[in-house]
Write a protein that binds this DNA or RNA. Structure first.
Lengths: 143, 143
DNA sequence: GTAACAAATGCAATTGTATTGCATATATTT
DNA sequence: AAATATATGCAATACAATTGCATTTGTTAC
């Protein structure tokens, strides 16, 4: 995914700092969501832990990133589709969390809508499938 | 939900201890999933933290409880439907995570199936809707 | 019922994720 | 280039979860 960090920051009236740019660059490298610990490992020498947390939180609030919890309760981040905004995350695709390598994929499969019971108002719906991903399935076959 | 802790333990060849019985009793009190911290608050004087964690893990492995992560990355637990087993969690209903009171409801709404991309094998699918629950919606109207 | 054994519990210590307060550094506006 | 608002880095802290080990408890066989 090719992104323009400077443009994204301007769009959301966020100050242009090298830390913020680096976070966006790093996350945009892969369509697979990246976890906070992985990000910290990659950026820990350039960016302080706390700053990283703060940047990720701001990006989530602004609708720039979406956050997916994996089975361990660890936050994972991926770039939002263009239609996401501060008020509403249009994060209605399926996440696939591999139980072998723990990676989280954003799959291009539409989520069928379900109607909520009376009284419940849903803002966002998050569907996560747990199983084994393509890579890990192949790795098993080889052995 | 009425359950028989002794029967459940026997069914899964688990030793019958008072701690294990208490955990099952406590979780069965409500259809709403209960979080680890809440459980600890309620049972902390009877059961050691670590023991509680271990019991919850065993119950999840055996398919007795299912675990739902809330937005904070905290584990929440609810009794599985009868069809759950060690090999397969038939946890295919929708969870509703209220962003106001943070409660997790197990809704009686079937999850529409989606087909996975080639190479990806899904074992369980977890759908969580985020929004405002019935109680909190009513509370807002009153003020 | 009781002895023997395996397994569960409790405690202390530790890991790992996330947050808060405050001083310093940096980006934007004029 | 100066003023000001905001972001960053550091230290300390909170909280969820895990590990190792000694002790206790449940189960099985006698």
């Amino acid at each position: 995914m090719k992104i323009d960090p400077t443009h994204i920051l301007k769009e959301h009236s966020l100050k242009h700092t090298k830390q913020r740019v680096r976070v966006l660059e790093e996350i945009a490298l892969d369509t697979v969501a990246i976890s906070q610990p992985e990000l910290e490992k990659k950026l820990g020498k350039e960016i302080d832990r706390v700053t990283l947390y703060r940047i990720l939180n701001i990006y989530e609030d602004k609708g720039i990133l979406h956050r997916i919890m994996d089975m361990n309760g660890t936050a994972n981040y991926a770039i939002c589709s263009a239609s996401c905004s501060e008020d509403h995350h249009h994060d209605e695709h399926i996440h696939f969390n591999c139980t072998s390598c723990n990676k989280i994929y954003c799959l291009d499969v539409a989520v069928p809508h379900s109607t909520m019971p009376k009284g419940f108002t849903a803002k966002t719906v998050n569907t996560t499938a747990y199983g084994v991903c393509e890579k890990c399935n192949l790795a098993v076959k080889k052995n």
